[in-house]
Each structure stands twice: as C-alpha cells, then as structure tokens.
C-alpha cells in the first residue's frame, strides 16, 4: 500500500520554526511505525532524527505522538492505525510528532531533563532502616502482586506528556513520578512511607491529578495509572485520620 507520513521536523541549527514534511512511501500493513521511520531514514532522508533501541516496547526510547495519540513507534503496526489494505493508496497521512509539552531537541527527539528530575524527586529507590536479614526479605505473592503492575513502567513519558494537569502546570509531578512513588510506598519492604507521602502531599503533588484518565489511555504497558494514584490518595486520607 501507499501511505504518506507527515512528520514534524525541526533542526535547531538551520530552522527558525518547526514544520511538517510529507514522505510518500510503499509500506506493508504489518510494518511497525518504527519500521517506516527507519525506512525513511535509511533510504530517503538521513537527517530525520528520532530515538529508538529495543524495537519491542521495553526500553521506552521511542514515545511519540502518532495521529494525535502518544504511543511507542515500535509497538504499533500500521494496520492498528487503520491502514490495512495492501492494495490501497491512503490519502489521509499518518501524522508523527514529538511528545507534547517537552522542549524539542531535534525532530522527534525531546528533552527529558524535567521528566527525570520529577522521577528523582520521589526518591525512586527502596529505603530500609532495619538491618537486612541474611537471606531475602520475605514477601508473599500478594505483596508482590501489589507492586508488579507499577514496576512494569518503562519511563517512556507517554503518560506524563499526555496529562492536561502537566500541560497547565509544569511543576506538577505527573503520573509517571507518582506511579514510581506508589511502587515504593506499596512495597512491603520499604520503610520510608511517611517521607514519601510528604513528597507527594504537596501543592504540585498528587492533588493536581483530576482523574482525567488521559495517562491511562496513553500508557503502552497498559498500566492503570489512575488506579494507583487513587490508592495513594486513599493512603494520604487514611494518614490524615
């Protein structure tokens, strides 16, 4: 089939403004979006710039906006976007843009500095005060179940950059950092619950979340982020009492 990719382009060295460039190419409905990006870079225009690594949705490198939604270019096939007829020429382009709300470095590459700052702000590491036992700390399968979903997060920023609260307040911690806070607050081994709750119980913390669910729709790992945020809110309310 023939499809057109309309790609957001910006080279800080030569362009004063970003623009969109169209590439009409031959593609297979089973191609991933990352495959067609590679095709363009390899065969047509080597200046096209994007991040990628694992190509199967586990490293979190290639979050981008595809037809208006945040997703991983390596985890979506053209046919999943509705381009499924091998004999057709599609008029409607596939629009590819960088993750919204982040500074642009070049083309689809964005600056993650702020994202990592918020990640670090929630103390993303196990804190224990009691001396470790000789063998493993015990955890029941149920204990682990409670943090398994949260620990799937690949830090791709698809959620945080789709969150309206983040757009309106850039200091809001955002869903990815809150999910990381959950990951440790609900880890039965962690001994810094209060410290962590203090970090998220702030004006730019958890209460900025208005449960709009954009983040859940954006998450390529199908993590129910708002469920986790609501558990944190519940925990905070219980602490008040």
């Amino acid at each position: 089939m023939k499809v057109t990719l309309r790609i957001f382009r910006f080279n800080p060295e030569t362009d004063s403004e970003p623009y969109y460039k169209d590439y009409e190419i031959e593609a297979d409905p089973k191609d991933r979006v990352i495959d067609v990006l590679h095709y363009i870079k390899n065969e047509i225009d080597g200046t096209l710039t994007f991040r990628r690594s694992c190509l199967h949705g586990i490293c979190g490198s290639d979050g981008m906006r595809i037809n208006g939604k945040n997703m991983l270019a390596c985890s979506i096939l053209l046919q999943d976007l509705g381009y499924s007829d091998a004999n057709k020429t599609y008029k409607k382009p596939i629009v590819i843009e960088p993750l919204p709300g982040m500074p642009i470095i070049k083309d689809l590459v964005t600056d993650f500095t702020d994202f990592w700052k918020k990640y670090e702000a929630v103390k993303p590491y196990l804190i224990t005060k009691s001396p470790p036992p000789e063998r493993e700390r015990l955890q029941s399968p149920e204990d682990v179940e409670l943090i398994m979903e949260a620990s799937k997060c690949i830090l791709c920023a698809c959620c945080t950059t789709s969150c309206p609260s983040t757009w309106s307040n850039e200091d809001y911690l955002g869903p990815a950092a809150l999910l990381k806070a959950y990951r440790f607050i609900f880890d039965s081994r962690d001994e810094a619950t209060d410290e962590r709750l203090d970090i998220i119980d702030t004006p730019n913390g958890i209460w900025r979340c208005h449960t709009i669910f954009h983040c859940v729709q954006a998450c390529p790992k199908e993590i129910n982020i708002t469920w986790h945020i609501s558990k944190l809110k519940q925990k905070l309310v219980e602490r008040e009492i």
């Binding site: 590491y125 196990l126 224990t128 493993e136 015990l138 029941s140 399968p141 204990d143 440790f184 880890d187």
Partner: peptide, 20 residues
C-alpha cells in the same frame, strides 16, 4: 549476589513461602 539484589529492592516473583 541475588540476595543482595533483593536487598537493593528488586521486585522478584515469590512462592507461597514468601521466598524468591
């Protein structure tokens, strides 16, 4: 080495006894 990773916080799957 594995016990050390567990102490560092690695979330392992567990068996019924609560062990890795």
């Amino acid at each position: 080495a594995i016990i050390e990773l567990e102490h560092m916080g690695m979330p392992f799957s567990r068996n019924e006894k609560g062990l890795i």
